[in-house]
């Protein structure tokens, strides 16, 4: 009987110790992540009838003396694009297709200073920060050598920049001392070209050319109302969508004809 009590007491003591250890761990990690915080305001963007892009502000707190990099991306995907080349040394034409794998559709990087000055090349590559790092992350086929690969990646970035889907800036993040913390804030334009989906905002606190901490937040873009209904119908009820489009066009054509006919357009 005494032996059983001893066993129960031992188990109880062990459990208590384990509980204390867990609690300690929890407090420790909570303190660690509390050094860098991130909040994206306007993180649920609704695409309605009159949508023409939006703005997203990212703010939070970081340790003083750290530099910050804010990266906004969509999940990696793949894109198939046409490549142009000279045929017969004279005419510019589509000469084939290029497959881009592991490419985010949206890629936006903002930093307190020039990225090359605050992060080492290894760290940039590890966290896929900046176009050179993204270039090594992306797979391009077909590309026979590094020079060709680099050429097509640069063209890809030019193409994305022209649609406002790839952006980069430095010095636009404002920071201010708040007690023993550094508050930061940036307001970024959200392009209307960014399709519905989930986007990830990652803030990196940087010191001595290394990422010392990171925090994440989300931005969700969603179609609503008539836009959602039409996009859904175009995909899910394609036949009816086609018929309705044709009937609407016929009705519009006849309607305008009748209005003009009454006005004495014909003779």
């Amino acid at each position: 009987m005494i032996k059983l009590r001893k066993i129960i007491l031992t188990i109880f003591s062990l459990l208590t110790l384990f509980g204390i250890f867990l609690l300690g761990l929890l407090i420790f990690t909570a303190n660690a992540s509390a050094d860098l915080t991130v909040k994206s305001n306007h993180d649920h963007i609704k695409i309605d009838f009159f949508y023409h892009g939006s703005t997203v502000s990212v703010k939070g707190e970081a340790d003083p003396g750290t530099d910050l990099v804010i990266k906004i991306t969509s999940p990696d995907g793949h894109e198939v694009l046409k490549q142009k080349g000279k045929v017969g040394g004279l005419l510019w034409m589509n000469t084939g297709t290029l497959n881009f794998e592991n490419t985010p559709n949206l890629y936006s990087v903002h930093s307190t200073k020039k990225i090359d000055d605050i992060l080492s090349a290894e760290e940039m590559e590890k966290y896929v920060i900046g176009y050179p790092a993204l270039s090594r992350h992306v797979e391009i086929t077909p590309s026979s050598n590094e020079a060709e690969r680099s050429k097509w990646f640069n063209e890809f970035v030019k193409y994305k920049v022209s649609s406002n889907l790839y952006t980069s800036s430095y010095g636009r993040i404002t920071t201010s001392e708040q007690g023993d913390k550094q508050a930061y804030y940036i307001l970024t334009a959200w392009p209307f070209q960014a399709p519905p989906g989930d986007y990830l905002v990652t803030v990196y606190a940087v010191k001595d050319k290394k990422v010392i901490e990171q925090a994440q937040s989300n931005v969700n873009v969603e179609q609503i109302g008539i836009i959602k209904a039409l996009a859904g119908m175009a995909k899910n009820n394609a036949a009816w969508y086609g018929i309705i489009s044709i009937i609407a066009a016929l009705a519009a054509g006849f309607g305008v004809s009748l209005v003009f006919g009454k006005g004495g357009g014909a003779h």
Partner: peptide, 17 residues
């Protein structure tokens, strides 16, 4: 799709004459 509308309008106008 829009040519359907324009050509309906145009055909009707030309048919009337």
């Amino acid at each position: 799709n829009q040519i359907v509308a324009a050509s309906t309008s145009g055909t009707y106008a030309h048919w009337k004459v």
